[in-house]
Write a protein that binds this DNA or RNA. Sequence first.
DNA 1: ATTGACATAATAATAGTTACCATGTACTTT
DNA 2: AAAGTACATGGTAACTATTATTATGTCAAT
Lengths: 215, 215
Amino acid sequence: MKKQLRMTHQREVILSELGRCHTHPTADELYERVKKKLPRISLATVYRNLEILSEAGLIRKLEVSGRQKRFDWDLRQHDHIYCIRCHRVDNIDLEGKKQLDLPPHENRGYEVSGCRIEFFGLCPQCRKIQQKTRKGEKKMGCKTCGTGLSDKQREVLEALARCKDACGSKDIAAATSLEPKQVSCQITALKKKGYVASPARCKYEITSEGKAALS
Amino acid sequence: MKKQLRMTHQREVILSELGRCHTHPTADELYERVKKKLPRISLATVYRNLEILSEAGLIRKLEVSGRQKRFDWDLRQHDHIYCIRCHRVDNIDLEGKKQLDLPPHENRGYEVSGCRIEFFGLCPQCRKIQQKTRKGEKKMGCKTCGTGLSDKQREVLEALARCKDACGSKDIAAATSLEPKQVSCQITALKKKGYVASPARCKYEITSEGKAALS
DNA sequence: ATTGACATAATAATAGTTACCATGTACTTT
DNA sequence: AAAGTACATGGTAACTATTATTATGTCAAT
C-alpha cells in the first residue's frame, strides 16, 4: 500500500503560483491565478491538490479564523495576524516568545500536539477605509444583502421615490399592489440596508443610497 | 435609534441551555437540545439569537478552528483546546502567561485588537479510539462519504457479495450492467470506504464492513 | 385602537467545499 | 511491449453550514 505522489503539470503550476503569492491565498483566489496559465483547469482540481499537497507536507493549510481555508507556501514555524474586516492574513514572527507550553496538569487529558497563536485587528488598508466611512458596513458575505433588491423591495422603493415628501406605509400600500403589513415588513429590510430613512415616526423617505440602488 | 433586546421565551431557553452545556456547542447542537423544550422552534431562530446575544455581549462566539462556529456561555477571559479528530472544544487557563503582546515593530501596520491562543490535540475519548482502530478514518464531514453508497457502488458491492472467492473487475463487469472501466472506478471508491479489500493483485473481495453497509 | 418595532417559523438561497464518475495518463507486472 | 491497474483530471451535482426572505405574531407606545 505505497502511496505515490505524481508531480503533474497542474500540481507544478499550483505549487509555483502559491510560492509566488505572499498573501496566503484561498483556494479560489489561487484558482483564478492558475487559470491564467492553465485555462482548462477545474476548481475541483485546485481544491483536491491543495488538500493532497498539504497532506504530503509540501505546503501548509492554515486554520485561521474566517470562512475560507487558506494555504501557505512557507513551511517554517511562524504565526499569523489577520484582518477582521477584509480577512487578509499576514505573517508575524514572535521571536523568543514562541515557546508556549501547556503545563501537564492543565491539558484536560488531551494529548497535545500543538499550539496556534493568532493576532487580529485592522490591516493598514482597512484602517484608512474605516476612517473615511464612519459606519463601515460590517457584513459583506452575501451578494443580495449588500446591494441587491428583491422584487417587493424594489416595488416599495420605487413607490417611495415617486413621493415628494415623507409618507406613511399606508400611502405606499395604496401606491403599490401590496398590503400595509407587507409594506412595513419591506421597509424594515430597506432601512437595514440604508435605502430608507425615517425623518419622523411613521414617516419614511428614500435616501440617496436608495436612489442609487434603483438605477 | 434605541436598540432594545426583548427577552423572549426562545431566547431564555437558548441562553439557559447554553449555560447548562459545558461543551461549547455549535448552533445545531444547541438547536437539538432546545428543540426538546420548544419543539416548534426554528433552526434559523437559534442562529439569529446566538448572533444577537453574542453581539449584545451576553454570550461569546468562539472563532476556533474547524468548520462550525461555537458558542460559549463563560464570558471570562480564557483560552481553548480542541480535538483534531472530533472537534470538541474545552477550556484551558494559561494563568500568568496569558499576556502576550505583539511588539510594535512586528505588527505589520495592523491596529491590533486582540490575540487568540489555541491548543489542539486528541481529547481523552479520541485517544482511546485511536488506539483501537489503527487506521482511524480521519474524514467524517460528508454523509455519503462515511457510510452511504451511490447506486453504482451498491451494484458493484452486491455483485461482489454474490461471489464466493475474490474475483477480478472483469468478472464483476460481467455480473453487472457496468463496463470494466466503470467497475474499477467504483472499486477504488469502495476500497477508500473500507468496504472492499484486495487479497491479491487485481483480486477483490467484500469486507465485513461492506456486507454491513449493504443491509 | 392603531402603528410600527421587534420576533418567529418555515423555507429559499447562498458560499465554500467535496463527492461522483467518465475519461485520460503513467506505472508495474508479466 | 501488452495488459492491467493506480492515480489524476474536468465537469458537475450534491452537501454542509449559514443567512436572507417573508408572512405572521407579539408587544409597547402613542
